[in-house]
């Protein structure tokens, strides 16, 4: 990796292919009917970026990306199956709102950031020869930047506690789902389900007794 900046044509070809893969799969995330497939397209995009990181001599980060995203996207696919109405893509699906504004914002973001990439004069200070990226990262994490690294751990712990509080069934003021009703299928319409009393006692004021 000492000559990572004087890379050969093979690295360039690999970069072009991986870049195309990352962008196309990233775009397909929002264009596929199946939400599970969307999460796997996102995984492909992440893996392509992780491979580009390895090309850039950041081996640890690239491999960490593989592991992290493989697990994360599997969890995401599971959530899709649990919660979403169309996880398998059996019906055509295009659930978007304010699409023109969104497309405009996306293109504007790309143009502004791309102009920065092309026209800004960034300093050219490539990796020094003889640098061991993994070793230097380890020494930094457990050396000068240990406080930052440990803070990230504390924040993750706080997140875990917050997630348990948010998603627990019994809230501080009673059961979390008490009295909850699904929204109507049409705006302002009747709820799309039954309340718990209806199901248990069978005595809703708008429904027949059964």
């Amino acid at each position: 990796m000492t000559e990572s900046m004087n890379h050969g044509i093979g690295v360039d070809i690999a970069f072009v292919l991986l870049a195309a893969l990352a962008v196309i799969s990233g775009w397909r995330v929002f264009r596929t009917d199946s939400m599970v497939r969307a999460s796997f397209f996102l995984l492909v995009s992440f893996i392509a970026v992780g491979a580009i990181m390895i090309l850039l001599a950041a081996e640890y980060l690239g491999v960490a990306m593989f592991f992290m995203m493989a697990v994360e996207m599997t969890v995401m696919a599971l959530f899709m199956v649990m919660f979403m109405m169309n996880p398998a893509g059996l019906n055509p699906m295009n659930m978007v709102h304010q699409e023109r504004i969104a497309i405009g914002a996306g293109i504007a973001g790309f143009v502004v950031l791309g102009a920065m990439a092309l026209f800004a004069a960034f300093p050219e200070r490539p990796l020094p020869t003889g640098l061991d990226p993994v070793r230097s990262l380890g020494l930094e994490m457990l050396g000068d930047s240990m406080l930052i690294f440990e803070s990230a751990g504390i924040v993750l712990l706080a997140t875990m506690i917050g997630v348990v509080v948010l998603s627990s069934h019994r809230g501080r003021y009673g059961a979390a789902a008490e009295g909850s009703m699904p929204p109507g299928l049409a705006p302002g319409g009747d709820p799309a389900g039954k309340s718990e009393e209806d199901e248990e006692a069978g005595g809703g004021h708008e429904h027949h007794h059964h």
Binding site: A22, V23, G26, W27, V29, F30, S45, V49, A102, I103, A105, G106, I107, G109, F110, L113, G114, M116, A117
Partner: peptide, 9 residues
């Protein structure tokens, strides 16, 4: 920038 643009969309 392309990835950020697609993500923003």
């Amino acid at each position: 920038a392309a990835l950020i643009g697609i993500g923003l969309y």
